[in-house]
C-alpha cells in the first residue's frame, strides 16, 4: 500500500516536471505580451512530431530536442513578426482579437501537422525500461524526461532573473512603456519571447512524445493542461507554476488510479474550473484579478 502511494506520488511529481515545461512557454508569452496562445498545445504536438521524424532518421530523442526547440523558435518568431505583431491588442476588444487569432492559428498548426504527418497516432520508443528502488518502480523515460524538463524550465527561469536579456524581457512584462523608455526594443523582445515560448513548447513536445503518443489533433487538451498549470499557479508566477504543475501531475495520476482513466481525463478540466471560480488569483497570488 505504502509502495503504491509512493509510486503514485513520485510518478505524479515526475509528470509535474513535464507539465511545468509545457506551461512555462505559455506563461512566458502571457507574462510579456498578455496573450494566451491557444495554439500552444499544437506547438507542443508539432515539436513532438518533429522529434518523431528525426527519430526515424535515427536521431536520439534527447539529441532531437534542441533541434525541435530551434525549429519551433524560428516558427514562433516568424509568427510573431509576421502576424501577431500586426494584431491590434489595445482596446476593449483586444483580448478577443488575440484569442480569435490564436484560436485560428491552433487549427492551422494542427492541420499543417495533419498534412505533414498524417492523422495517425504516433509515438517514439525511448528508454522503455524502469528503475526499481525499494519496490517503487518508475519508468526510465519519465525519469529522464522529467529531469530534462525541470532543468529546461529552471534554466529559463534563471535566464529571466539573472541575465541582462532576461531582465529586459521581464521589464517588458511589467511595463512595456517603461521598457521602451529605457531604450529596449519592444518589438525585438516580443519576437524573442514568442519564439522562446514556442521553443519551450517544442522541447516539451520532444519529451512528451516519448511518454505518451501524439496525433495531430492532441493539441487542444494540452493547451488547457498548460493553462491549468499557470491558472493554478497564478498568471506570470513562476514559483506558483512549479507547485501547480506538481499538483496537477499528482492529481491526474491519483485520479486515474482510484477512479479510472475516465475521471482522470475530466480531472484537469474540473480542477481548472474549480480554481478559476474559487481561487481566481491562483495558489500563491494575492490580489484579485479584474
Amino acid at each position: 500500500m505504502l509502495v503504491t502511494i509512493l509510486t503514485l506520488a513520485l510518478t505524479g511529481v515526475l509528470w509535474g516536471g513535464v507539465y511545468l515545461l509545457m506551461a512555462s512557454g505559455l506563461n512566458l508569452i502571457y507574462g510579456v505580451m498578455k496573450i494566451v496562445n491557444l495554439a500552444h498545445g499544437d506547438f507542443i504536438v508539432v515539436g513532438g512530431l518533429l522529434t518523431l521524424t528525426l527519430f526515424e532518421l535515427h536521431v536520439n530523442p534527447l539529441a532531437a530536442l534542441p533541434a525541435a526547440a530551434l525549429v519551433m523558435f524560428a516558427v514562433g518568431a516568424l509568427i510573431q513578426r509576421g502576424i501577431l505583431e500586426r494584431l491590434v491588442t489595445a482596446g476593449p476588444a483586444g483580448e478577443l482579437r488575440t484569442l480569435l487569432a490564436t484560436f485560428g492559428m491552433s487549427y492551422v498548426v494542427s492541420n499543417v501537422g495533419l498534412l505533414l504527418w498524417g492523422a495517425q497516432v504516433q509515438s517514439v520508443p525511448f528508454l522503455e525500461g524502469s528503475v526499481d528502488a525499494f519496490g517503487i518502480r518508475l519508468p526510465e523515460n519519465l525519469l529522464v524526461c522529467s529531469a530534462v524538463a525541470f532543468a529546461f524550465a529552471i534554466a529559463v527561469h534563471i535566464w529571466l532573473t539573472r541575465t541582462m536579456s532576461g531582465k529586459a524581457v521581464r521589464a517588458t512584462s511589467q511595463s512595456a512603456v517603461g521598457a521602451a523608455a529605457c531604450g529596449l526594443s519592444i518589438r525585438r523582445i516580443r519576437v524573442l519571447t514568442f519564439g522562446l515560448g514556442c521553443a519551450m513548447a517544442g522541447a516539451a513536445g520532444s519529451l512528451t512524445i516519448t511518454l505518451i503518443p501524439f496525433q495531430n489533433s492532441s493539441g487542444g487538451p494540452l493547451t488547457v493542461q498548460a493553462f491549468t498549470v499557470i491558472a493554478l499557479g497564478g498568471l506570470g508566477n513562476y514559483v506558483g507554476a512549479f507547485l501547480a504543475a506538481v499538483i496537477l501531475g499528482v492529481a491526474e495520476v491519483t485520479t486515474s488510479f482510484v477512479f479510472g482513466s475516465n475521471a482522470a481525463a475530466a480531472v484537469v478540466y474540473i480542477l481548472f474550473i474549480l480554481i478559476l471560480v474559487f481561487r481566481p488569483q491562483g495558489l500563491l497570488g494575492r490580489s484579485a484579478r479584474v
Partner: peptide, 9 residues
Amino acid sequence: GSITVLMAV
C-alpha cells in the same frame, strides 16, 4: 483557420 487569423488581424 487561416481565414480566422487573417480576419482577427
